Amino acid sequence: VRQEELAAARAALHDLMTGKRVATVQKDGRRVEFTATSVSDLKKYIAELEVQTGM
């Protein structure tokens, strides 16, 4: 499950970095929206997932 969450989070980051205004991911069973202003929060979430998956 964590691998899927990590892939979704990375895709969301890619979307935001390429101009999409809002990206949505499932985080702990709930839907979370990230915007360009919350990229740093999304990067932290990705880092947490990488630690949890041993990457």
Rank of each mutant, 00 (worst) to 15 (best):
V1Q: 13
V1L: 08
V1M: 13
R2D: 11
R2C: 11
R2I: 08
R2N: 12
R2Y: 08
R2V: 13
Q3T: 12
E4Y: 14
E4S: 09
E4T: 12
E4P: 05
E4I: 13
E5P: 03
E5I: 10
E5R: 09
E5D: 08
L6G: 01
L6M: 04
L6Q: 02
L6K: 01
L6V: 05
A7E: 14
A7I: 14
A7V: 12
A7N: 13
A8F: 09
A8L: 08
A8Y: 09
A8Q: 14
A8V: 10
A9V: 04
A9D: 00
A9Y: 10
A9Q: 01
A9W: 03
A9R: 00
R10G: 03
R10M: 13
A11M: 13
L13C: 05
L13W: 05
L13G: 00
L13P: 00
L13S: 00
H14Y: 14
H14Q: 11
D15Q: 12
D15E: 15
D15W: 06
D15G: 06
L16I: 10
T18F: 04
T18A: 04
G19K: 02
G19S: 04
G19L: 02
K20N: 07
K20A: 13
R21M: 15
R21H: 15
R21T: 15
R21E: 14
A23W: 03
A23N: 03
A23Q: 03
T24A: 07
T24Y: 15
T24W: 10
Q26A: 06
Q26P: 07
Q26H: 07
Q26G: 04
K27D: 03
K27I: 15
K27L: 08
K27M: 08
K27C: 10
K27T: 06
D28L: 03
D28M: 02
D28H: 04
D28Q: 05
D28S: 04
G29K: 03
G29L: 02
G29D: 05
R30G: 08
R30L: 13
R31P: 14
R31M: 14
R31N: 15
V32Q: 05
V32T: 04
V32K: 05
V32A: 04
E33Q: 05
E33V: 13
E33M: 08
E33Y: 11
F34Q: 02
F34S: 01
T35I: 04
T35A: 05
T35R: 05
T35S: 09
A36L: 15
A36N: 10
A36M: 11
A36G: 07
T37Y: 08
T37S: 15
T37R: 11
V39H: 03
V39D: 02
V39T: 06
V39I: 14
S40D: 14
D41V: 13
D41I: 11
D41T: 09
L42E: 00
L42G: 00
K43N: 07
K43P: 01
K43R: 14
K44Q: 13
K44M: 13
K44C: 08
K44L: 07
K44F: 08
Y45G: 00
Y45A: 02
Y45W: 15
I46D: 01
I46L: 04
I46M: 02
I46S: 00
I46P: 00
I46F: 01
A47D: 09
A47Q: 13
A47S: 11
E48G: 04
E48Q: 13
E48L: 11
L49F: 02
L49S: 01
L49E: 00
L49N: 01
L49R: 02
L49G: 01
E50L: 11
E50C: 06
V51C: 11
V51P: 04
Q52N: 04
Q52R: 10
Q52T: 10
Q52G: 11
Q52V: 14
T53H: 07
T53D: 11
T53S: 08
T53Y: 06
T53G: 12
G54P: 05
G54T: 06
G54L: 13
M55T: 13
M55V: 15
M55A: 10
